[in-house]
């Protein structure tokens, strides 16, 4: 049997992920996490001096704090097995990636272990965010300078 024939055989006997079911679960959990975020935003707007726009920063910080608790108590990975992208895409998923790496590498010490590995998983998000922001801003600046568009 060659590799191609085997792959056909293997795929015919392997269960396929139910994409519709996965999407529904991602929608539900992702939506709930964002709703919690919205409630926290309301809280910061009502009790502190934040506006709709500025409440975003403390909200994100609070969500990451919650992600730390869920990660530390071993609940985030259970949620993620159910939710998939529903728990990975919100900023809590970014927090979970950072915090789980930090906890995992504690055994190699705080400098080389925690410090060196904290962005092991989440680093690519920062790198690609920054590079893409740089390119987008540069292109837009160029277009504005030559007068194709404006800010």
């Amino acid at each position: 049997m060659d590799a191609k024939q085997y792959d056909t055989l293997q795929q015919s006997l392997s269960p396929k992920p139910s994409i519709i079911k996965n999407c529904l679960k991602a929608f539900l959990v992702g939506g709930i996490i964002c709703t919690i975020g919205q409630l926290i935003t309301f809280f910061y707007m009502a009790y502190f001096n934040f506006t709709e726009r500025t409440a975003g920063n403390p909200t994100v910080a609070t969500m990451i704090f919650l992600a730390m608790l869920f990660t530390g108590f071993g609940l985030y990975k259970k949620l993620a097995q159910f939710a998939g992208a529903g728990s990975a895409v919100p900023v809590t998923g970014f927090g979970n990636a950072v915090i789980s790496s930090a906890i995992e590498h504690k055994s190699e010490g705080y400098v080389l272990g925690v410090g060196g590995n904290i962005f092991k998983l989440a680093g690519s998000v920062i790198v690609f965010g920054v590079v893409s922001a740089f390119v987008v801003a540069l292109v837009k600046l160029l277009l504005v300078t030559v007068g194709v568009t404006n800010w």
């Binding site: 990660t71 071993g74 985030y76 990975k77 993620a80 097995q81 728990s87 979970n96 789980s100 998983l121």
Partner: peptide, 9 residues
């Protein structure tokens, strides 16, 4: 991944 990382298997 780290044990506590939430990745869907």
């Amino acid at each position: 991944y780290p044990v506590e990382y939430g990745g869907q298997k």
